[in-house]
Design a protein around this nucleic acid. Structure first.
Lengths: 247, 247
DNA sequence: CGGAGGGTTGAGATTCATCAACGCGTGTGG
DNA sequence: CCACACGCGTTGATGAATCTCAACCCTCCG
């Protein structure tokens, strides 16, 4: 049971398990199991019912929707420590999304029944789930307004900014977590447009060499900041950030 | 306290209060209050902290984001019985959205503290919130793939379809719940494009006269159906629906 | 009667997707 | 060890689609 956890080496504790009691954790993991999946494996398709919650131990997944013409719209890109299907379980009805491994991955499968039972039994777990789903929803909001009103350069800039803040914000260089074509689909643009936009961003002090992003200075990305993203920024309100000064 | 509820005449019980005990309901309503707000009133802005959950007793609201150039992206359009800010309260940090009355409205304000306390105290309430936020997230997913891969006609068609299913699906005529310019912004297109798309839809048996939509037959909208939307459809799998037959 | 707001229609400009070709690095098999 | 194919990314030319700007109609209301 509990040694399932020790098999997974997380840098930081997954949000799903935050502040849970040993007991609660035990119940959740009681019927769970780890499984290795190869790249491109479809874990679940639109229309299936969500039988398990997926927690990524290693690797990366994406969730996406497909239409009749076969075009795909990426909803999320997820890495180790992230979870998915928590929201779908509470939507009622079949899954609106596909889930696919983008790299070879090791996934923890937690049965739907265990999740739903534990929501009723442990209010801390319920709160964790609420926070996680709310967080997904917030990201979705950003995606929506990005696709409505932002140019490709702005979308990419905002994407880089959030990655930079997540990465700790302390280096001028950081890595793209996924392939460019995956990212461009997530942002709702073609790889070609993505590539062309990157060239434009050099003038703004943002240089992309292969998978690494190189910033001219720590505030190169401030240009793309939002009021509500600024609140997450360790440098918020500091003198160098032109964007923060305005707000 | 409880007679706050009697002041509000809901057609169906709001999802927020579904299956709650009298006691739990009393705690929630204990510190709540009703307030009338005029059309166009901003209840809350991006960057504010969410102090209350809003439940619409009468009227309609919209939530949206604005960028520096002043362009607006509508996230949700809500009517009587709907709630908002439940998700924002669990996001941490300031609100990523503005909330505005689109018509003169009567709103029930439920304090944030009461909500968070009740989530810990009442697992039924926590489940309700999870379901609501998951439902918002599902809608957001649909918005995302609509803006990624669907043409204006398809977006509008899907919007009409969901309204039709919500409306009970039993009439060939039904009303648009909002102004066309509000709907077009919600769908991420301009009013002009919206208007032009409506003309194209006449060929598909969908006629819009002012605020009322007139369908040639009960299956005119099936063309725009998704696998996961079909599951909500009372007519699913029936002979007349070409879309359902495929799946 | 006149103004304001919502909605429609038309012409033009812009932007992004599409299609096609090519460079480059990697892995594989001869 | 080399040749080749493959996947990813880039670049260029083209076209289609939507946004923008502008004018107009209609209804509602003072």
């Amino acid at each position: 049971m509990i040694d399932l956890l020790s098999q997974m080496r997380f840098a930081t504790k997954p949000q799903l398990f935050q502040a849970l009691s040993e007991e609660s954790l035990g119940v959740l993991l009681g019927h769970s199991f780890l499984q290795d999946v190869p790249a491109n494996k479809l874990l679940l398709q639109q229309g299936d019912t969500a039988s398990h919650l997926y927690l990524i131990a290693e690797g990366s997944l994406r969730t996406f929707r497909v239409d009749k013409e076969g075009r795909e719209a990426t909803i999320r890109m997820l890495q180790a420590g992230n979870t998915c299907m928590e929201a779908v379980m509470f939507m009622g009805g079949p899954s609106p999304i596909n889930v696919q491994a983008v790299t070879p991955s090791r996934i923890l499968f937690i049965p739907e029944k265990a999740v739903k039972a534990q929501v009723l039994a442990d209010s801390q777990f319920a709160t964790n789930l609420l926070r996680i789903v709310a967080h997904h929803y917030k990201n979705a909001m950003h995606q929506i307004d990005a696709m409505n009103i932002k140019s490709p350069v702005q979308r990419i800039g905002y994407y880089f900014l959030t990655r930079h803040i997540e990465a700790g914000h302390d280096h001028l260089d950081f890595e793209l977590p996924f392939q460019k074509q995956q990212i461009s689909n997530y942002l709702g643009i073609t790889p070609e447009t993505f590539s062309r936009a990157l060239k434009q961003m050099k003038d703004l002090g943002i240089d992309v060499d292969n998978q690494t992003i190189k910033l001219r200075d720590a505030f190169s990305l401030c240009h793309f900041c939002d009021p509500d993203t600024a609140a997450m920024c360790p440098k918020q309100g500091s003198a160098g950030c032109t964007a923060c000064k305005n707000s």
